[in-house]
Design a protein around this nucleic acid. Structure first.
Lengths: 348, 348
DNA sequence: GTGAAAGCGCTAACAG
DNA sequence: CTGTTAGCGCTTTCAC
């Protein structure tokens, strides 16, 4: 094996195997119309020399890089890490790779990374938009798939998100089965569309089940453990609720702390249901029962949709992936731990 | 602004601004020897047309892609996600981007991704090696920086890791300050070099402090919550230790569960110290006091070293980054919560 | 200071 | 089936 295999070109291989560079190219890209003889000679030369085709040149010529961009708020956030992993898995299967950028929920960074993306000539991009003006990308013709609830602001673009309405229903049904009534709600940032969706779904379900929704108790708080603990404390001051449903796991975990600190027991005195599916929810005592968002699947499906769009498919749909219920210890027991899933929905 | 700005080339800009494409290229790459007049005209044309230079063509010509590869076991693992984030942050500052691949600790996958990396002509790569044969990459001349404790198998390559000896000392010093004696140890996979390092550091410290190290209690278990819980149960059967030091946070968390289940209190009856710094350790009750590995910094420094190596620096060092102590609730209190840091070390 | 010309390594017609 | 011939869009001598 040659040592500086890196600098070998297809011309060297052509010389080594006594054919033209076109033939080498054909063999390399697995074309059919090549004689066995030629294929063998080329293959041998390639293996003997350790040659690797220069993907850069190939991309320049073919216009395809085999790379897609992924623009998310923060890879260090477990939810987004799962999404990224899903996208990578799908990409790997199609021999593609993923370029990841973090926006930190900052429109300016988002804009800059969007530019970097288009310049590096990715074949397409998956983005969780934090701003309204997606001009940069939509103008630059890069095939795009949106992820997350904020995607709804761009109905013209394909998207995949979690079906939070279905998730809420799943949780609420679990509550009625356990004989619990309407939960008090712990919710986060009032500006996110996710919050409205969450509360709306609870109201709807409640109305359909004869709950006194006008008396629904809502406590706002910051989207963190501390925020959840404090919101729960405030809630407790207005009377101990039999069950609380938090819009995210961190707040639910904080609520669990607050319940304990108030000298109450979970799930005996107050039951808690979370929403997210963060790994951290597994380690609390008791473990948090929660509605899990299909994070990894979101990434995977987003890549698949993007793939279709890159291939020229005109009407790539909006997808809503079902949440699942993961039973741990913060709700009164039913028949033991299990996972309930919903069905995937697609709309164009 | 033109609509299909994507398909514009530097020749179009040349025509639009009435200069040659060489001049356009010069302006674009910020060369000095260009008249103000020309620079202005080109700049205007670029802005008016929304032109974006094709990085692919640039890369092909210049041999630089501005991309580095990052090959880690699993981006969905919080530790590696932090490492990735650190590398990305550093990369962004230098206008570079990061291509992430997951090996899942599988040598075969590692090999395949390594090949993909070299073919996409990244400028260099940061890898956590899972196998001994790094032939693929080392042969292919791609600048490389290793991360993680397994990096030591390749002394010829620059690397950055966490100083686990220092981390262990930090924890142990904290124990003696709290008046606690030699801890029982909860350790994971016997084959990883990390384990030996951990135990070795405890023995060394113990010997220096007159501990009866020959009586050191060691309990093996799987590197998970469940594994920790079971290992702790076994340990408990041989007598309740005053304090246990787990080689990783998941096991420590499991131990916490086991202690509770045995009707004991933490930290009153048995104190627990973890090692890792996973976010999940924050949510237990009490929160886990632990030694935190400098994960994000590892990623950042690795990128910086790689950058030097790409720039042609011949003697890029091995780096050992200090761990820090994060106080939460599983050790008897001292003066309240705080973080203690160590110092960074470099060796060539 | 500027333009012309020659590629970077590969793919894709187009003839044979 | 195979070789020849043009480029992909850009950078980079090399003259002027």
């Amino acid at each position: 094996m040659t040592d500086n295999a890196a600098s070998l070109t297809i011309i060297d291989i052509a010389r080594l195997s006594g054919v033209s560079k076109s033939t080498v190219s054909r063999v390399l890209s697995g074309a059919e119309n090549v004689s066995e003889e030629a294929r063998r000679k080329v293959t041998e030369a390639v293996e003997a020399s350790g040659f690797r085709r220069n993907e850069l040149a190939r991309s320049l010529r073919s216009g395809r890089t085999g790379m897609v961009g992924l623009l998310i708020p923060d890879i260090a956030n477990p939810f987004w890490a799962e999404v990224a992993r899903g996208a990578q898995d799908a990409a790997t299967e199609e021999m593609a790779s993923v370029l990841i950028f973090n926006s930190d929920w900052d429109p300016e960074r988002e804009r800059r990374h969007l530019m970097a993306l288009t310049q590096s000539r990715v074949d397409g991009a998956i983005v969780n938009p934090v701003q309204n003006g997606l001009d940069e990308l939509s103008r630059s013709q890069v095939p795009l798939v949106l992820i997350g609830s904020s995607a709804e602001r761009f109905p013209e673009l394909p998207s995949v998100g979690s079906d939070i309405t279905q998730g809420v229903q799943l949780g609420l049904e679990r509550l009625v089965q356990a004989g619990l009534g309407m939960p008090a709600l712990l919710v986060g940032d009032p500006h996110r569309t996710a919050r409205e969706r969450f509360v709306g779904a609870v109201r709807e379900f409640g109305a359909a089940h004869g709950w006194p929704v006008e008396a629904l108790r809502l406590q706002d708080g910051h989207y963190t453990i501390e925020g959840g603990r404090e919101a729960m404390k405030r809630l407790l001051q207005g009377g101990v609720p039999r069950v609380v449903f938090a819009a995210n796991d961190m707040m639910a975990l904080g609520a669990l702390h607050a319940v304990r600190e108030a000298g109450l027991n979970c799930p005996e005195d107050v039951a808690i249901l979370g929403f997210d599916g963060t790994p951290a929810a597994e380690v609390s005592m008791p473990g948090l029962t929660t509605i899990m968002k299909p994070s990894r699947d979101i990434g995977r499906r987003a890549f698949e949709l993007l793939s279709r769009k890159i291939a020229g498919d005109e009407d790539v749909p909006h997808m809503s992936l079902p949440c699942s219920l993961v039973e741990r210890g913060t709700l009164p027991t039913r028949e033991g731990p299990r996972v309930v899933r919903g069905e995937e929905r697609t709309a164009t």
